[in-house]
Design a protein around this nucleic acid. Sequence first.
RNA 1: CGGGGUGUAGCUCAGCCUGGCUAGAGCGCUUGCUUUGGGAGCAAGAAGUCGCAGGUUCAAAUCCUGUCACCCCGACCA
Length: 504
Amino acid sequence: MSGKAKTAIVPTRSDDYPEWYQQVIKAADLAEVSPVRGCMVIKPWGWSIWENMQAVLDGMFKATGHENAYFPLFIPMSFLQKEAEHVEGFAKECAVVTHHRLEPVPDGKLMPAAPLDEPYIVRPTSETIIGAMYAKWVESYRDLPILINQWANVVRWEMRTRLFLRTAEFLWQEGHTAHATEAEAWEETRRMLDVYADFAENWMAMPVIRGEKTAGERFPGAVSTLSIEAMMQDRKALQAGTSHFLGQNFSRAQQIKFQDQNGQEAFAWTTSWGVSTRLVGALIMSHSDDDGLVLPPKLAPKHVVLLPIYRNDTDRANVLAYCDSLKRDLEAIPYANGRLRVQIDDRDIRGGEKAWHHVKRGVPLRAEIGPKDIAQDAVFLCRRDTGTKASTPRAPFIATVSQTLDEIQANLFQRALKLRQDNTVTIDSLADFQAYFTPKNEERPEIHGGFALCHFSDDPAVDRLLKDMKVTIRCIPLEGDKEPGRCVISGQPSSQRAVFAKAY
RNA sequence: CGGGGUGUAGCUCAGCCUGGCUAGAGCGCUUGCUUUGGGAGCAAGAAGUCGCAGGUUCAAAUCCUGUCACCCCGACCA
């Protein structure tokens, strides 16, 4: 056939980045849009990645003293109304359940029959329902802290959706904690941000900037919102996790109060923090290339795929036997938080097609094994991240495979870090700022911009200009210098720089 | 919710303006043969109430009315 297909994914990243993203998901068989508007079906390969993320994060939460629990999907509407800013932030995107029970009507259809006295909303987040329970559970300072996480689905009725990045229903974890003191709650907020940063960098191989959101970008009802921000390959920012210091706002609204050691009544200090299936989208956009998905080994559903190659039944039996024994040896090797995950793909399809299948799905290592390899007691080993291929004798392959995976993991991180470093600039003039964020081709914007470190001010005129340019203040970095300057847009005095970027 | 667009085979689409044979193509799928160390070739085959409901007509994928769904662009967002 054409045979000249240079890339497995069409279009390429530079041709049309958003379309490339969709095609990678399709080629890797991660997920599909469903018949339900705005909701996705996560398919086994995509789900497996999420499961791996969950397992690691869950371990981290438990290692920091948290326990899992589960709260209802439905929240009485009145609960949401208790915190004014919270209502304002979420009301527009809530799905509302107004009835129970369906009854047949004459034309053979079904109609909701019994209206609810008080409508339920489908949780967009659970501060209110969890807070209502905490109010019952907390009486004394001895009941604090409460450190609970839940793994759940939530619904936010978004206008426009994109697989993994923004869907009407998504999966996440939400941690909700209550503390006796402000300092302790702040410490918790910071601790969980660090957990997220650790996970992003050391498991997803995705460098992140930890920072604080400006007032406009804050979680509705929070005193302060911290986030980790990552740069995707199109140089747009993606918020990958958030940790909120809620102060006493929610505990006041929900009467989470206790008697302190002096017998005084006090409101608890609360936090909440979460990451979602959006992380899968972040993973895709951080590492994948024009041949499809590229997975960091520590989160890959399979680390090594063995591809048997044979022409006749005799070869077939020998090659499969060799693969079986190699698989057993490999699966005994410890890696990351478990053991090596190995697959033999013995489907009866052509070798080339089979190899591409696994390239597109992002399996870190591919070993092709045929009679010639077996004769030399070797495998033909291919690395997904670099595309390098080499005949590798079995013993050294087994001895170094976990090290090779570590190298791939490190390479992906370094590659992503370099992309961010190469596309992070310091800007001090409005003209430079506008030039930086303006594409050369307004009709079909090419990949442009990046992270701009600029002084800023809280001013309506600044907000307006940023909105026009579709640029947002991602965060005020926690680390980095704090020297004062003047807002790049308004010229007003500013105490430190923030990260500006176009964002998902 | 504003502006634009599209519904025809599993997928991508042609056909519609100018109504008329058994509604087409590519990809995919099934079967057979030949192939097989980097996305195979040839041949045969299965597969569509043309989004839905009315209407006009001898005759509707095609014209008219209504309706539903989805997509793109904006406003909103993890």
